[in-house]
Nucleic acid binder design. Structure first.
Ligand SMILES: [Mn+2]
Ligand SMILES: [Mn+2]
Ligand SMILES: [Zn+2]
Ligand SMILES: [Zn+2]
Lengths: 138, 138
DNA sequence: AGCTACTTTATAATCATTCTAAACTACTTG
DNA sequence: CAAGTAGTTTAGAATGATTATAAAGTAGCT
């Protein structure tokens, strides 16, 4: 039993989620990584099917991802309007986005600074700032 | 015949599009405004159905919006992953976005300035920068 | 007026996502 | 540990935005 499994069981328990084998598997795919992981549900499904003998149903993957998001372990990224992207980096941060390859790359928060914030509409306050640097080849 | 109609006929002609009555109507709804207009296809359909006696089919609205986008008269906005938003402001600019009300508000480009740009990944260059200020009540 | 390419339209198809409801399982309690 | 219960998984159906199809209509040209 690899060390990581116990960690994810704890992580799930701490969020009030039962550590089922499906959830643990998904956590391993998501969080057992060096770098931030940006993914669509479809990409995640493929990875799971490859790395895994027992299949996890599509509905469970959706359920689990949404639950992890609700519990604050994932962020949803708005980039491209065709499908949802998720991000294992839950801190407020910014991205490079290549519209051709549909690749997202994290930018360290301190690499981007806004000189002055605009004044929000009346009765509203700024909760988060997301900067997307759209990049392309050459 | 209001003045605006002639303008849109020209606009369409200049883009190599035949000025059909459907396209002219859509242009009037989109561009005959003081402020920037942010909309989903669904919202646009409703406005057209209200302001109009003769109906325009859903397919034509999709076709026309995509064509106008291709010709550079509209921008597509990535915010929320459930449906596409479009923007009559085609300049590079930034937005307030209220996730509750799903309202987009333009921010004048010169009201936001990035101190230093991050270095893009190897072989890539920055084409555009989009800043979204997520706002909420109070 | 007639031709032809472009356009509109109703309708079907697609595809991501959500819903349903039945089978299954983790944890609690006795 | 045996049951009970709430939480979970799952296959499949449903939904909703978007795109494709293909037939009928129209704009611009001759
Ligand atoms: Mn989006
Ligand atoms: Mn969709
Ligand atoms: Zn990220
Ligand atoms: Zn705008």
């Amino acid at each position: 039993m690899p060390n990581s499994e116990a960690i994810y069981i704890e992580k799930l328990r701490n969020s009030g989620l039962r550590p089922t084998k499906q959830r643990i598997r998904i956590c391993e795919v998501l969080f057992n990584r060096e770098k931030t992981f940006h993914f669509s549900i479809n990409e995640l499904m493929k990875i799971i099917q490859t790395k895994n003998n027992q299949k996890i149903s599509l509905a469970t993957v959706y359920n689990t991802i949404h639950t992890l998001k609700k519990k604050g372990h994932l962020k949803e990224i708005n980039v491209g309007n065709d499908m949802s992207y998720f991000d294992t980096n839950t801190h407020s941060h910014h991205h490079f986005y290549d519209n051709q390859t549909k690749e997202l790359v994290d930018i360290n928060s301190d690499e981007v600074q806004i000189k002055k914030n605009p004044v929000p509409p009346n009765g509203k306050k700024i909760m988060d700032i997301e900067v997307t640097f759209k990049i392309s080849k050459e």
